[in-house]
Design a protein around this nucleic acid. Structure first.
Lengths: 231, 231
DNA sequence: CCATGTGAAAACTTTCACAGCG
DNA sequence: CGCTGTGAAAGTTTTCACATGG
């Protein structure tokens, strides 16, 4: 039975992997690849082949038995799952600091149909200017502009101390989803999806894994030493 | 039995949540809080109280029954788990574009003991300059400088097309861990921990969740309409 | 004969329920 | 009496194994 996506709850992990598959498919299409097997896609993304097939089967049956998947076709299907073609997503960014500016200059994001139409800041020296051709407004104008321009996505790139207030204003303005880059836990109404990316947390996690890997390596070394001692 | 951390394999999700707890504990300490219960920490981070207790119990027993946890003490313990005090982590950044510059100016990262000591780029106009007081070198000097300075963490902030090559050079230089911000799947030896953050993937995931939430809302509306029609 | 698609088993994660301690 | 710490249950995700179709 072919499942139709949307209704059923797709796991977070699957959504995350699907985005990775899409990135790989884009890369492969540029490289001129025409077909690929689940095993190849698995090896490129670092998951198992069964996982790739299981993930894709949530959304439909895209492969040909004995052959694999058609790169261009699968890419189109996965793009559709992420809403490409349905509409172009209008975005705004709150906080025109170094991170905000870096996000606005990202070509990658634009490539997937996301488009910044406004930026907001509190600093009077920034208000009225343009960053990457995007006009910078006062935060006081946020609600009016988000409503008027039908902005779908709000990106929070302000310091932790203002993040909660910005999230509240975005929700009141009727934003459809939030991407939070401030190092602060934020509660939003359940109907407004929010994803948080905390860059400093990634550093902390990495340092944990480094210590963990090095401890494992030391323990293996002790095993080897013990074994050679018993020779 | 009190488990000692390090040896056992802690799940990725637990490591991630521990980093979030640490962020909250820092915030609470600044706010002057002295103790907190698992339920409070849970509510602040959006997980269940049992989850908080289960996560913490992997590393030890830090609470007092009937009272909860001492904020300052728990913060110290969690910091220790992430390697605070053990050493200060020397970092380098490869790719002095807008994202690289934004990462270098992040005060947050420095706060946790991470310290940039070198930046690398290919652009001759950037080589020899300083960004945020950090010297910019040619990528050709990477191996020498990483080895000489004992740099632990390499941050990849170059375009996707150069990411794999940069990762290879970092590994050859004996880097201990990698944080990859390039939208590219990279393979590194198993002994070198690597975390990848793909900003454009976060946008894609968010658009999936927005559509998913809005479809759910529409279906609920149909339910309500049907119910009122049957009155 | 090859590789997908998929039920079922295994592994893992979260929640539950409550014993035990301050 | 309240809240932690923790085995065990429930729930979820991943892997396995193989039927099915090009």
């Amino acid at each position: 039975m072919v499942k139709k996506y949307g209704l059923e709850d797709v796991s977070k992990a699957t959504v995350s992997r699907m985005a990775t598959y899409l990135r790989c498919l884009t890369y492969l299409e540029q490289q001129g690849a025409s077909t690929l097997s689940s095993r190849e896609l698995a090896s490129l993304t670092g998951v198992s082949a069964e996982q790739v097939r299981q993930d894709l089967s949530v959304f439909g049956r895209f492969g040909k038995r004995g052959t694999g998947y058609d790169v261009a076709h699968l890419k189109t299907e996965v793009e559709a799952i992420f809403g490409r073609g349905v509409e172009r997503w209008k975005c705004c960014i709150v906080g025109v600091g170094s991170l905000g500016t870096a996000l606005m200059s990202s070509r990658m994001v634009q490539k997937w149909g996301f488009r910044y139409v406004a930026a907001f800041d509190r600093d009077p020296r920034k208000i009225g200017t343009h960053v990457e051709r995007i006009p910078v407004y006062s935060i006081d104008e946020l609600k009016t502009i988000v409503r008027r321009e039908h902005i779908a996505i709000g990106v929070i790139a302000v310091p932790a101390s203002s993040a909660r207030n910005v999230a509240r204003i975005l929700c009141e303005a009727g934003i459809r989803g939030i991407l939070n880059f401030a190092p602060q836990s934020i509660k939003v109404p359940e109907k407004v999806p929010m994803l948080s990316v905390d860059l400093s947390q990634e550093f902390l996690k990495l340092s944990f894994y480094i210590q963990s890997a090095e401890q494992r390596a030391r323990e293996e070394q002790i095993q080897i030493d013990a074994a050679s001692h018993n020779e």
